[in-house]
Design a protein around this nucleic acid. Structure first.
Length: 575
DNA sequence: GCCGTTTTCGGCCCGACTGTTTTCAGTCG
């Protein structure tokens, strides 16, 4: 069972305990355990196999009780307590969860008083005006529930980080123009560079919050205003995304930036540390009794609780505070550390631009090298090249290189891994390439053990340098194929093969968690774009941010190396 | 249910907005 499935069980337990109005700290304990399990780089079952119950209890948020439950799930495949809770409500009741404006208290009230046990029923009752009259219910609340259902039906899930950044940009630009706006900072999951974004959070400092609220809620992008207060407003944008703006006084920018960046769990942990030191930390600053002792700069918050600054990408509430306490925070890789891009396509296969145009763009980005890695013959839909064709391309690249000064084009290909684990080109052709990127482009539905074997067989070829988009997922479109990532990482280590973080916003594959796991095992990473046009070379930022979320440092990434060292790394397997 | 350089028991982050309440509960982040 993978960690996501374990976590789901505990999320559901928390949800049902909430409905039953259980002790909220007990609920929070389940939520925290679920969140930490999701973020765990090692599989929970592996941890248990290695060290039993004791090892499980080492995981933050897992204590005696939850460790026993995990053991029970591993041994029997289920959890009686979970089944019991599920049995108390009809299955359709779950569909009510997550409706904006409808929390557990309301849901249970509706269930008890009106036997509402599904989203359809709720919609019907609300439309017929049958909700008003219940304790605490008026016409307005009824209307809001209908709007919440509509919103839930219209916006299915979350947005890619790239989309969210595109939506946020014009809003930030517009607000920046107001003379009342002092500083402005996109915060929340956007600032933490999460791979998907639920809503856009923007922090503004201003002496005149009302003006900012008015300007924000009347922007042309706004479809509907959900809430408008004197310092905080929420709207739904025309593209269906929610955006929140919060205004604070300029001298509290730092504390507010920290609070508004989150994550929620990170904030709770920081504030708890504050409480232990006799401090109160909120978006308004750091307080000792009634005295404000800091909050203008974000670092004030960390200093107050005796920690170094923690970069936003690490603020996931999954061990970064522990690491900071011990002085073990990584020195995260920076965008400027990247010296070149090792996967891209040209007109020789399905790219939109010529090799020369890709070089031009790469130079603009300050790169020292790129690898051209066009598709191979099996991927015909993507213009895959035969052996003869690719050899012609390589000869052309030699010619270009002889004219280039201070820039190097590395000869490569994105070679298909065939269903039996063999490669799409014979070794005689592979040896002409300086970098071989291996990738799965067919037979995605293979059974897990077979798929894992298929990839590991490819690793055993001494010409294979990098496994591209290792899980094949397309966020929100296609699930990852079934593959044992632990085995893949071990095999990569044993064979000297590198793993890719593919920077395409819908891929981000490896994801942060797997990247972290690879690093822990000493496997080096290549961050590349897989660009199919010159402009897409700019996607590299999404890959670098994913690496940062995976705690990667400059030394963990091969394309931070100068060309001579990089080529050595690429030829290391061939010796 | 978790957790411990004040604790193995008694704590557990903090505040804005809404709608319905005449002082607050529910929801959200």
């Amino acid at each position: 069972m993978d960690n996501i499935e374990f976590a789901k069980i505990f999320w559901e337990i928390a949800e049902f305990l909430e409905l039953k109005n259980e002790n909220r700290f007990r609920i929070r304990a389940y939520q925290k355990a679920a969140r930490n399990i999701e973020a765990l780089s090692e599989n929970l079952e592996e941890i248990y196999k290695k060290g039993g119950i004791k090892a499980l209890e080492e995981v933050p948020g897992i204590g005696e009780g939850i460790a026993e439950k995990v053991e029970n799930i591993i041994k029997t495949g289920k959890l009686p307590q979970h089944d019991k809770l599920l049995a108390q409500f009809p299955k359709s009741f779950i569909s009510l969860m997550g409706t904006p404006g409808l929390g557990p208290k309301t849901a249970i009230l509706l269930y008890k008083k009106l036997k509402i046990d599904s989203l359809e029923k709720l919609k019907k009752f609300a439309k017929e005006g049958k909700l008003r009259g219940l304790p605490g219910f008026g016409a307005k609340k009824e209307e809001n529930i209908l709007k919440g259902i509509e919103l839930k039906e219209r916006v299915k899930g979350r947005f890619l980080i790239s989309e969210a950044l595109d939506y946020a940009k014009p809003i930030v630009e517009s607000l920046k123009k107001l003379k009342e706006v002092d500083q402005i900072l996109p915060a929340g999951s956007l600032r933490r560079w999460q791979e998907t974004i639920g809503d856009i959070d923007i922090l503004v400092t201003s002496k005149n919050p009302e003006k900012v609220m008015k300007a924000f809620t009347s922007l042309p992008q706004v479809d509907r205003v959900l809430a408008k207060g004197s310092t905080k407003s929420s709207v739904v944008l025309k593209n269906g995304m929610q955006a929140d703006v919060r205004v604070v006084d300029p001298n509290t920018f730092g504390a507010a930036a920290h609070y508004f960046t989150g994550s929620k769990q990170h904030n709770i942990e920081i504030r708890t540390l504050g409480v232990k030191k006799g401090l109160k930390i909120s978006e308004y600053g750091i307080f000792k009794g009634n005295k404000r002792i800091g909050g203008k700069e974000e670092v004030d918050v960390f200093k107050a609780v005796g920690l170094p600054f923690i970069p936003p990408e690490l603020r996931q509430g999954t061990g970064e505070i522990e690491a900071a306490k011990k002085g073990k925070l990584p020195k995260l890789i920076e965008l400027s550390d990247i010296r070149g891009d090792l996967q891209m396509h040209s007109k020789y296969s399905d790219g939109a631009n010529t090799i020369e145009e890709m070089v031009e763009k790469a130079k603009q980005l300050g790169y020292e090298y790129i690898a051209i890695t066009d598709h191979t013959k099996s991927t015909r839909v993507a213009g895959g090249q035969t052996e003869k064709e690719v050899l012609k391309e390589l000869a052309y690249i030699d010619k270009l290189n002889s004219k280039l000064k201070g820039f190097r084009i590395i000869k490569g290909a994105e070679v298909d891994i065939l269903p039996d684990g063999s490669l799409d080109y014979p070794d005689a052709v592979l040896k002409e390439l300086e970098v071989v990127i291996a990738a799965i482009h067919s037979n995605f539905k293979m059974e897990k053990a077979k798929m894992t074997k298929r990839i590991i067989k490819a690793f055993q070829n001494k010409y294979v340098n990098i496994l591209s988009h290792p899980t094949g997922r397309l966020i929100g479109v296609r699930d990852p194929y079934e593959v044992d990532m632990e085995e893949i990482i071990k095999a990569a280590k044993d064979t000297g093969t590198y793993l890719e973080i593919n920077s395409f916003p819908e891929r981000l594959d490896l994801c942060d968690i797997h990247a972290k796991r690879a690093k822990e095992e000493g496997v080096l990473i290549s961050i590349d774009t897989d660009a199919h046009s010159a402009i897409q070379l700019e996607y590299i930022k999404y890959g670098v941010m994913t690496a940062r979320r995976g705690w990667l440092e400059k030394k963990d990434v091969i394309n931070t190396q100068p060309i001579d060292k990089l080529l050595k790394l690429l030829y290391a397997k061939r010796r």
